[in-house]
Amino acid sequence: MRMALVILLMTTPALAHHAFNAEFDANKPIKFKGTVTKMLWVNPHAWIYVDVKKADGTVEEWMVETGTPNTLLRRGLTKESLKEGTEIVVDGYQSKDGSRRANGRDLTLPDGRTLFLGSSGTGAPYEKK
């Protein structure tokens, strides 16, 4: 008979991260297409600024929080890898305070490809010395 496996909590106060559900609202999922105006390749979170054109023609600026850029850099991406003007689809959850900020749960290009999956397409993933 198979038994359920329960993994014990690993309590490590030495490293604790904020619970996303403390800042972003599970009841406010968002999904929109927008145009990248810039990306900040910074830690602890990289940020993508996205302009979203609304039905009435006005443009809203959103800030999308993403992960650590270091993971991407190790796969050969650089700060040139997301160009201004690129259209992306942001699937995430809006900030609890109602501001135009979201955590980028799933980021894709309009054709469905996941953003930043794989290397940037520059050829070899790592430039060796």
């Binding site: 390749w41 650089t78 700060k79």
Partner: peptide
């Protein structure tokens, strides 16, 4: 400091 290294800075 990486000695005799070719790769350029990937970001700032």
């Amino acid at each position: 400091v990486r000695m005799n290294w070719q790769q350029e800075a990937p970001t700032d």
